[in-house]
Design a protein around this nucleic acid. Structure first.
Lengths: 121, 121
DNA sequence: TCAATATTTCAAGAAGTATTGAAATGAAAT
DNA sequence: ATTTCATTTCAATACTTCTTGAAATATTGA
């Protein structure tokens, strides 16, 4: 036993923990809906109604987990959701599904694709 | 403001919380990989190396969140992952993405589909 | 009925996470 | 230089969730 899926597992768990909080979930979804341009922390604070210091802590959790990226712009910090990382997480969740049955697998893939499409209209 | 996306938000949060635990994440993925036939609690306990009472608590969290289903078979209980619910959760995570930009949206959908495909081979 | 098996329930201590407001940092404007 | 603005850091308290083992429940087989 010398393979290392441990890192991925811990990472996925950290990402899920980051999302597993009502405030952070709102924050993350606000970032997703803002798109790649992202949002300044202050704008976010208004949008999700969370105090600045609290928001800052939550954003740190999301970025540390790899679900958001920060860039500095003058005195503000712009946060953006990392959708590639999000897709990776989803992939990890349903990995090796269905006991290798290709028909079932296709079904799962289809469901996910439909979900994604529905989300993106 | 009289729309009610609150239920969905709380539900999604509960599901993410359920997954946001190293042991439960292993449990859930074991169920995913077992497919719709599911696994008896005892078999799971061996597979993920969690004590029966602890496992039972974790399975209760997953089923209450709607990510797993139980059925009784004699003196054992068979648990199975709910992949439709999982797809719904993913959908919720990336809802309204990209500020409505159709090109970006297509990109996100593609990423999710690719992730799903990669997971299912 | 009795014993064995599979699983859940319970209680309590241990560990981890959230929230708060005040103070600190760092960048821009005056 | 000083002030203002955006954000983060800190420390303390409050809150939730985990884990454990022992006891309870429920089902099957002898």
């Amino acid at each position: 036993m010398s393979d290392r899926p441990e890192l991925a597992e811990a990472q996925a768990c950290a990402q899920l923990s980051a999302l597993a909080h009502e405030g952070r979930l709102r924050i993350f979804r606000a970032l997703v809906s803002a798109g790649p341009k992202g949002l300044a922390a202050g704008v976010l604070a208004d949008k999700v109604e969370i105090s600045p210091s609290n928001l800052s802590a939550h954003l740190a959790v999301l970025t540390t987990a790899g679900l958001a990226q920060v860039t500095k712009a003058g005195r503000q910090r712009i946060y953006a959701a990392d959708l590639a990382a999000t897709a990776e997480l989803v992939s990890f969740l349903v990995a090796d599904c269905c006991g290798g049955d290709p028909d079932l697998c296709r079904d799962v893939t289809a469901k996910l694709a439909v979900s994604a499409l529905r989300a993106c209209n």
